[in-house]
Design a protein around this nucleic acid. Structure first.
Length: 556
RNA sequence: GCCCCCAUCGUCUAGUGGCCCAGGACGCCAGGUUCUCAUCCUGGAAACAGGGGUUCGACUCCCCUUGGGGGUACCA
């Protein structure tokens, strides 16, 4: 009996190894997702390792941000920093037997220096001023699971730095640290972005020199912008700056005057808020804070990415700024659901092989397969994501939708909750569920629910079509129906709906729209709102009558 | 410049020599349902980058061109 041949298969170990130089990018999220799905599919392990060997750019805040973003997405890991720990750097709290999981800490433990010395002793590396270089003098061939066999000739290779000099704190470079850590942590599958494909020859050579087994390399095609350019956080700055410059140009190109005008707008908006709610605007800014945020993003330095906090400050008075979603946190901000975002990005470069596109994470785990990863870069299609998101929002129970929406609004659109109250907010949520692409949609479309009654601006086209046409037919209906509303004692959606129905019948009007449309213009300034019943109920009798009177006065 | 990689509807993709006058999804267009918007239903337009080979037969294999991406850092 030779049971020996039936060795248990080697456990799969994957890792996600971001460098903490900013928030988690949507491309990074997909890399993490694939590493996660592959490990889960095979009952293996996922390691989270923080590659903070760039002293100048790495920050603890970025590490925390990445942990937060992964948590929001719902991705977990078996080894690495503990997301629940107050200080993720704390050695005691890190999970796993192959720690520490921060490269800066591994460096402090001498892990890299010991192996660099070994290479030096073997004559495979040499000192170059205060740095150390590795000799690349042989042809290198390796296999990539996605891209197949790759060969690089020695002539095209150069000796490269494996340990930085004093300037870089004598830390190992990325190439050295990844190779060593992947081997020491017993990683079997290195899943990462395609930008590392060419450099993999360095890692293969290093593995050989150090006597490590080479892992399986799995390089993923890149995710690009809709115009085919590389998707990067700079896009956000570009969009914001463009909008800001457009505004500045409206003020004779004088930035100082644009800033003053914006600040004025901000202050009057705050005053209105105080007037409406009897309490100060929950988002408060100092004048200096506001101006410096504005100036920071006008500075023409693309690497200097604007912070989300700065954007928030500006976005409160610059509704025109809607930067493209690039980072995971942006998607949260704009109200996309984490699981939908994940299943959508899974489709960028991977598919289950049949026509199934709507699937959940369990389906992904069951069906994920490295051989079905494509080679072509793909462009990120926000419209398609939005559609998937809208479907998910529409399908869920209204209880669930209310729960998610109120969570989102407490964080980002507090004023709606303050104004509508708990019960009103539920009605509001239900009214918008089927109309929402994201959790932000109700805030965008339902602005009129929270603005002051005398703040409604009447859209000329809507007025013409629904009020003025046929010698003021709509206006007449509006005035007549106002009497019915004034007399209404049971101010609920159902009653109000019936009220319109019987009014239509009594006056032999064409349909509900004959009343609902003039009402919409009076209440919202436009011809669009949720169903008229709930809209009336939410606004309340007093506001409805006030708005009708003002509309008749203004448009009559 | 040099090196590596990639190439099917606008976009994400299915397709591994005959099942393909190329299928699905998002978007788009037209019509229908509807109090507006959205949803929903029905239908439609829309692609194998170009040129050479190989083969009885190429979207599928090979070569070239073109286009795109990446690398060429004491960034990762």
């Amino acid at each position: 009996m030779t049971g020996q041949t039936d060795k248990p298969p080697a456990p799969i170990v994957t890792r996600f190894a971001p460098s903490p130089t900013g928030n988690l990018h949507i491309g990074g999220a997909r890399t993490a997702l694939f590493a996660w799905a592959f490990a889960r599919k095979h009952g293996g392990q996922l390691i989270l390792r923080i590659e903070d060997t760039d002293l100048a750019r790495s920050t603890p805040e970025s590490t925390k941000g990445i942990l937060r973003d992964l948590k929001w997405l719902g991705l977990d890991w078996d080894q690495g920093p503990n997301p629940e720990a107050d200080d993720p750097y704390d050695l005691e709290s890190q999970k796993g037997d192959h720690g520490p999981y921060f490269q800066s800490q591994r460096h402090e433990q001498g892990i890299y220096d010991k192996l660099i010395q070994k290479l030096l002793d073997l004559g495979l590396a040499y000192e170059d001023e205060d740095a150390v270089r590795f000799r690349m003098d042989k042809d290198i061939a390796f296999n990539d699971v996605v891209y197949g066999p790759i060969e690089v000739k020695a002539a095209d290779l150069e000796d490269f730095i494996i340990r930085k000099g004093d300037k870089g704190g004598r830390l190992p470079t990325f190439h050295f640290a990844v190779t060593v850590d992947d081997a020491l942590m017993e990683v079997t599958h290195v899943i990462r972005g395609q930008e590392h494909l060419t450099n993999t020859s360095k890692h293969a050579a290093l593995c050989d020199a150090l006597g490590f087994n080479r892992p399986q390399w799995v390089h993923l095609p890149s995710i690009m912008n809709a115009d085919g350019s590389k998707m990067s956080k700079r896009d956000k700055v570009k969009a914001a700056r463009k909008a800001a410059q457009r505004i500045a140009l409206d003020y004779d190109g004088s930035i100082e005057r644009a800033v003053l005008a914006l600040w004025g707008a901000w202050q009057s908006a705050s005053a209105i808020h105080l007037d409406m709610y009897g309490e100060p605007n929950p988002i408060e800014h100092e004048e200096t804070e506001f101006i410096s945020a504005y100036q920071r993003f006008l500075i023409d330095k693309e690497d200097n990415a604007i912070s989300l906090a700065d954007l928030d400050i500006l976005a409160t008075v610059l509704p025109v700024i809607k930067p493209p979603e690039i980072e995971v946190d942006d998607f949260r901000h704009y109200g996309y659901l984490p699981n939908i975002t994940l299943s959508y990005i899974a489709l960028l470069g991977w598919n289950p092989g049949d026509d199934i596109e709507r699937f959940d994470l369990n389906f992904l785990i069951d069906n994920f397969d490295l051989t079905r990863i494509g080679k072509k870069n793909s462009q990120f299609d926000r419209t398609k994501l939005a559609k998937f998101n809208a479907e998910a929002l529409a399908e869920m129970t209204s209880e669930r939708f209310i729960e998610l929406l109120s969570k989102h609004f407490i964080e980002f659109h507090r004023e709606f909750i303050n104004k509508l109250g708990e019960i009103g907010f539920q009605t509001f949520a239900t009214a918008y569920q089927a109309r929402s692409q994201t959790l932000n949609t109700p805030a965008e479309l339902g602005r009129f629910f929270v603005c002051a009654d005398d703040e409604i601006e009447y859209n000329a086209k809507a007025v013409k079509k629904n009020l003025a046409k046929n010698e003021g037919e709509g206006l007449n209906v509006l005035q007549q129906f106002r009497g019915e509303l004034d007399a209404c004692v049971d101010w609920t959606a159902d009653t109000l709906h019936s009220l319109i129905e019987s009014f239509v019948e009594k006056h032999q009007l064409k349909n509900m729209g004959s009343v609902a449309q003039p009402l919409r213009v009076a209440l919202t300034g436009n011809a669009v709102s949720p169903e008229i019943g709930p809209t009336l109920e939410l606004l309340g009798k007093e506001a409805v009558l006030k708005r009708i009177d003002r509309c008749v006065e203004t448009c009559g």
